[in-house]
Amino acid sequence: MTEGKIIKALSGFYYVLSDGKMIQCRGRGVFRKNKITPLVGDNVIFQADNDKEGYIMEIKSRKNELVRPPIANIDQAILIFSSTEPDFSPVLLDRFLVIVESSEIHPIICVTKADLLSEQERSEVNHYLEYYRSIGYEVLLLSSKTEEGINELHPLLNGKTSVFAGQSGVGKSSLINAFDPSLQIKTDEISSHLGRGRHTTRHVELIEVCGGLVADTPGFSSLDFTEIEAEDLGYTFPEISKKAEECKFRGCLHDNEPKCAVKNAVEKNEISKERYNHYLQFLQEIKERKPRY
């Protein structure tokens, strides 16, 4: 038996890369019985009678996984957001950051279409980005057309398994094509009727880019906080997590509790009021979530 990594899943087949060769595999029935699904990114043990077809026998332990998109063993998430067309959305970015942080995946924030910004618009976007930098996030302003910022992102991909994620129509596929035009990943324009991007990626696949592996995915089909508990939400906001150590009461949710260091920091403008309001919005969603059985 041989070890390899699943780099593509399509129509019930898993394409395993091992020693430079691609083996088309099926999963053993025991996986279905135990309700285990092999994921792109999984390190696996497989058995093959020839160099084309085989069976996955074992899935090695995962360091993390995402459900939608279904992918495992991610080092970092490149969160791609548009500065315009569609407009930059801080609340959506914070939603992505919470999901990525809760999965213990390192996020890098990339804002695309910088070439379309006027000076005033660039100033407004930079206002948001500077705050994210101040709380410890790596932030890049990019343009696939002018290649602004592309060289800064190159070395961050080397030796890493990265997932590109973000809203539709923000230029994820265009950005990957900018790294390697030979890939020719399908892109599409924003739908003028719907006002949002059309999905152009239909399956999850790991692609060799800039010395690392990049997952081109259909995007996050769900941004619900189904796996996050109310008491854990604050840990996904770095500035709230840090300030929470000074709260009077242990387990403070930074909502209605007295002597809350986080609320005090918001009042003093040490923590962004907008980010804090997003935190409260997400907290309410989690509290109103239907219980799981």
Rank of each mutant, 00 (worst) to 15 (best):
H203Q: 06
G211L: 14
C252D: 04
V204L: 02
K242T: 11
G212V: 04
F237L: 08
D188L: 12
S221V: 03
N264L: 15
S222Q: 14
R196T: 15
S174V: 09
S173A: 05
Q167R: 06
L156H: 07
D255F: 11
P238C: 09
T146L: 14
H193M: 13
C247E: 09
I185Y: 00
L194Y: 07
G234T: 02
G171W: 00
K242R: 12
P258I: 12
T146D: 07
S162V: 04
I176C: 02
V170I: 10
T200D: 01
C210N: 15
P238I: 05
H203I: 04
R198W: 07
K248P: 04
S173G: 05
I185P: 00
D224Y: 09
F237T: 02
I228F: 01
T187I: 12
I190G: 07
S144W: 01
Q167Y: 03
L156M: 15
G197M: 09
T201W: 00
A244I: 07
E148Q: 15
S162D: 10
F179I: 06
G169K: 02
I176W: 00
N177P: 00
V170E: 01
S162P: 00
A230S: 14
T217F: 13
E148A: 10
A178E: 05
C260H: 09
A178Q: 10
A165N: 08
A265S: 13
G212A: 08
H203V: 04
V204K: 02
A261Q: 08
K248G: 07
A261I: 02
E205S: 07
Q184N: 15
C252R: 00
S191P: 07
F225P: 00
A178Y: 06
P155Q: 08
E246Q: 15
S144L: 04
G234M: 09
V163E: 06
D180W: 02
H199A: 14
E231D: 14
P181L: 09
G251W: 07
L153K: 08
V214C: 13
E147N: 13
A261C: 09
D188P: 00
K145M: 11
S168E: 05
L157N: 01
S182T: 15
G211Y: 11
V170G: 00
K145D: 13
N177I: 08
E148F: 07
R196V: 15
A230M: 03
G197D: 03
D188Y: 04
V204W: 03
I176D: 00
A178S: 13
G169S: 08
C247T: 05
N264M: 14
C210L: 10
I150Y: 04
K263Q: 14
E208N: 14
V214M: 13
F249P: 01
E245F: 14
F164K: 01
H199S: 14
